[in-house]
Simulated assay, not measured.
Amino acid sequence: MEPKKKIHNTGGRKPKQDPAVHRYGIKLTGDENFRFRQMFEQSGLDCYSKFIKAVLFKREIKVVKVDKTTLDYYVRLTQFYRQFQAVGNNYNQIVRTLKTNFGEKRALQMLYRLEQCTIELVVLSKYIIAQTKEYEAKFLQR
């Protein structure tokens, strides 16, 4: 019988030139662990080992703080703005419909009501703009 020939496996990853094989272990107290996790969360990194290496070798760590209330305020303000756009888009259609479907007197009465509602909407929008500017001045850091 002939000896079996060795087949070299060429599949898979290429081995790294300098693999990370050195391992260290540390133990933290409860307070230290709490501070460590806070720092890790603020760093925005996705892996503890990357965070520890960054801290050890004094790489720059970026801290991104997201204010949930400001984000929520922004989302609601955007939704409100979309509603204002929808009102503006429908305004001309309403006037056109009033003109074609009703008599002149009835159309004028309804246009007067629409005008009053529009004035209220303008006052409300000015109030919202003032509140937004006040909020930005007090709470948003530039």
Rank of each mutant, 00 (worst) to 15 (best):
M1S: 14
K4H: 08
K6L: 07
I7C: 14
T10I: 10
R13D: 13
R13E: 08
P15Y: 07
A20M: 09
V21H: 10
V21D: 10
R23Q: 11
Y24P: 02
Y24L: 11
G25A: 13
I26C: 15
D31C: 03
F34R: 14
R37Q: 10
Q38D: 12
F40Q: 12
Q42C: 13
S43T: 07
C47S: 10
Y48M: 09
F51C: 02
K53L: 11
A54E: 02
V55T: 01
V55S: 03
K58C: 04
K58L: 08
R59W: 05
E60L: 01
I61K: 00
K62F: 07
D67H: 13
K68G: 04
T70G: 06
Y73N: 07
Y73L: 09
Y74K: 03
T78Q: 08
Q79H: 01
A86N: 11
V87E: 06
N89H: 10
N89K: 13
N89R: 12
I94M: 11
V95D: 01
T97E: 11
T100C: 03
F102Y: 11
G103Q: 03
G103D: 15
E104Y: 05
K105W: 06
R106G: 05
R106F: 07
A107H: 02
A107F: 04
L108M: 14
L108C: 03
M110E: 15
M110Q: 08
C117V: 07
L121D: 07
V122F: 12
L124S: 13
S125H: 12
S125V: 00
S125E: 13
Y127R: 07
Y127L: 04
Y127C: 03
I128Q: 12
A130C: 12
Q131S: 01
E136F: 05
Q141G: 15
Q141H: 08
